[in-house]
Nucleic acid binder design. Structure first.
Lengths: 208, 208
DNA sequence: TAGATTGTTAATCGATTAACAATC
DNA sequence: TAGATTGTTAATCGATTAACAATC
């Protein structure tokens, strides 16, 4: 009956930012943080921060001290599921694909990139300790490692076909960098990272 | 008195997705789209779509046909300010930085990357038709091209220092790929693109 | 014309803010 | 203890949904 209190989407969407901030403080050697200072640095209202933290924190904040940073980091990570390990593949080993293979951050968030795939023979090989295989070996790999998640970094015009290949191989969620709308069967999720949109919305806000 | 109707943030945040979808349809040769079919394909409620479009569209949709795609695309682009041109610089010419220099999408969204900068001499040179300069030349370039926006693609530990350099040169908004919280003076905006967080939240949703 | 589709006004829902009591 | 800081309950705000009238 007494369900785990469900956390509003809006709170969830702020958690990564809290995490980033808290880790920065931890690196500086700070042990406690008050909701007020957190709110000020992050441009949120103190009440909002307090409500968010009260939903996520395992231990309540201590009046006069605030929240223990180490503990809070661990709580947020647990909430976000970063303690679980997830396997993922990268589709497309061009410039962006290789940058992603080299990116340090994934493993940190519980994501293991098991391999990359590319359909052009000259891209096959090794980069940053990861192997790029021909697309023919995708299905086999996905099955063997039970991969559900893929990062799509092929050129715009190849994106839909590559996405179809991923879905056929059993992929259930796709993080796409191609600025194209992708059609997928029900049950498959697509999330778009559109670098240009992010940058545009940022510079846009300058002129307001 | 009669202000331009202000568009809710929630609507604004959906516009890029509409745009992506509409451009896909246009490429297929479709000329009109109804709010209902748009809603279904994009997993939104039809009413929500209609409300969004009514705020953005210059011409109302035609009963029995729906909205004219070409016109709608143009309206959304205008709303998002993609017709304006914005200059930007890239800080850090490693793997990710170069991938961004090569990325086709920016120009399309009204963003011109005028140059990249790196502090290590061996990175200086030309990539994808863009020039990588030593950091010493940053300020001069920012002033000459009136650049307000920068993309930050340096390694984690170099991010804060690089950000400070950007701010000192006059940059007002930063799109950071480094998974670190950045401290900036008031009036400077930072937006984080955390690839790992995006991927993690996506694969997370699978297990729900 | 009849019917599909839009656009708008009112009702619901959820999230943020404000006020205040609880606690170390 | 006094005071800073948290946590919660109620009030406000904004966005989504529902119902229905308007239109080609």
């Amino acid at each position: 009956m007494n369900e785990e209190k469900t956390i509003p989407k809006s709170t969830l969407s702020r958690l990564p930012a809290y995490l980033r901030y808290l880790k920065g403080e931890r690196e500086k050697g700070v042990a406690f943080v008050s909701s007020a200072s957190l709110a000020e640095d992050m441009d949120l209202s103190a009440v909002c921060v307090r409500k968010d933290l009260s939903l996520v924190a395992s231990a309540p904040g201590k009046p006069r001290f605030g929240f223990e940073i180490k503990e809070l980091i661990s709580d947020i990570e647990r909430q976000l599921g970063y303690h679980r390990r997830t396997n993922a593949v990268v589709m497309g080993a061009g410039g962006l694909g290789r940058a992603i293979l080299a990116y340090e951050g994934f493993s940190y968030y519980g994501i293991d990139i098991v391999a990359a795939f590319d359909c052009s023979p000259e891209k096959i090989g090794s980069f940053s300790g990861k192997t790029v295989y021909p697309v023919e070996r995708l299905k086999e790999t996905v099955e063997r490692f039970q991969v559900k998640t893929a990062v799509l970094t092929v050129p715009r015009l190849a994106a839909q076909a590559a996405c179809d290949t991923l879905v056929a191989a059993g992929i259930k969620s796709v993080l796409s960098f191609a600025p194209v709308y992708l059609t997928v069967p029900e049950g498959v999720r697509v999330k778009y990272v559109d670098l240009a949109v992010s940058l545009a919305s940022l510079s846009e806000s300058l002129s307001e």
